[in-house]
């Protein structure tokens, strides 16, 4: 499948605020490592443009599994997942990879930067994966975002020379470099101190409000729900509550 979208695609703020970006219908997941273990029991969920949603729940409730399925890193055992109106469960690995790079930004608990590349290259890596034109088109905005998070002086620095907080800010900016439709974050502040956590959350919230990019964030930290305008609670593989 060719990547046909323009590198200068209009940003999400231009899209109608109530558009459904993600729709999950009866998503189930069973792991079969010798013994079958059902993790998700029929999840129905919609995520809209501009949502800043937090996914909470106890350990083992299925949060990370659900995030991996939504991020097209994993496939459901049954059910259907629509991304921007497109059904994804029948796609092969490479087609899912192309949708990921076009629609989804990831922020992981551990920053997961590429040590062989400098700060700016790490931020632009999702664009480089799409192609040279995307990388060039995103360059100025990437520099601008790095300046927003006080890393303007470090854009050529090796990421291995940054502090943990700085690395997580680079990872956060990287998630937006390709102007994704939705950003998925798995405990993005889990390894940060309180002050840096708040800075990263503010950054994500600012970008959400500025661009309309939808956020779906897994967290254990109840304080972070204060930043969200929607809280989804998972309990034993089911949506226990979904409040705005």
């Amino acid at each position: 499948m060719a990547d046909t979208t323009s590198p200068n695609r209009p940003h999400q703020a231009d899209v109608e605020a109530t558009d459904t970006i993600l729709r999950l219908e009866d998503i189930r997941k069973t792991y079969t490592n010798g013994v079958a273990e059902e993790v998700l029991f029929g999840i129905d969920l919609e995520v809209n443009t501009g949502d800043f949603a937090v996914l909470i729940g106890k350990s083992g409730s299925g949060k990370t599994t659900l995030l991996n399925i939504i991020g097209l890193l994993d496939t459901p055992t049954s059910g259907r997942l629509f991304l921007d109106g497109r059904e994804t469960s029948t796609l092969d690995e490479d087609e899912r990879a192309r949708l990921r790079r076009e629609y989804i930004g990831f922020i992981f608990q551990s920053h997961l930067l590429l040590p062989d590349f400098n700060v700016l290259e790490n931020v632009l890596m999702p664009c480089r994966i799409r192609g040279k034109a995307y990388e060039e088109a995103a360059h100025d905005r990437a520099v601008e975002m790095l300046q927003m998070v006080d890393l303007g002086e470090k854009i050529q620095a090796p990421v291995t020379k940054l502090s943990g907080g700085q690395q997580q800010r680079v990872a956060t900016v990287r998630a937006f470099a390709n102007a994704p439709t939705v950003v998925l974050a798995d405990e993005p502040t889990g390894s940060l101190d309180s002050k840096t956590s708040q800075a990263v959350m503010r950054l994500m919230r600012d970008i959400n409000q500025e661009t309309g990019t939808a956020f779906l964030m897994v967290t254990h930290d109840p304080e972070l729900t204060d930043y969200a305008d929607r809280v989804i609670e998972l309990r034993d593989g089911r949506v226990a509550s979904d409040t705005t």
């Binding site: 991020g71 890193l73 690995e93 490479d94 990879a97 192309r98 949708l99 990921r100 790079r101 076009e102 989804i104 990831f106 997961l112 930067l113 590429l114 040590p115 062989d116 890596m125 999702p126 994966i129 799409r130």
Partner: peptide
């Protein structure tokens, strides 16, 4: 392995 995983998560294809 980790860097390959990161690249694949960000959308790198098997061909790349």
């Amino acid at each position: 392995l980790q860097e390959i995983g990161i690249l694949k998560a960000m959308g790198a294809t098997r061909h790349q």
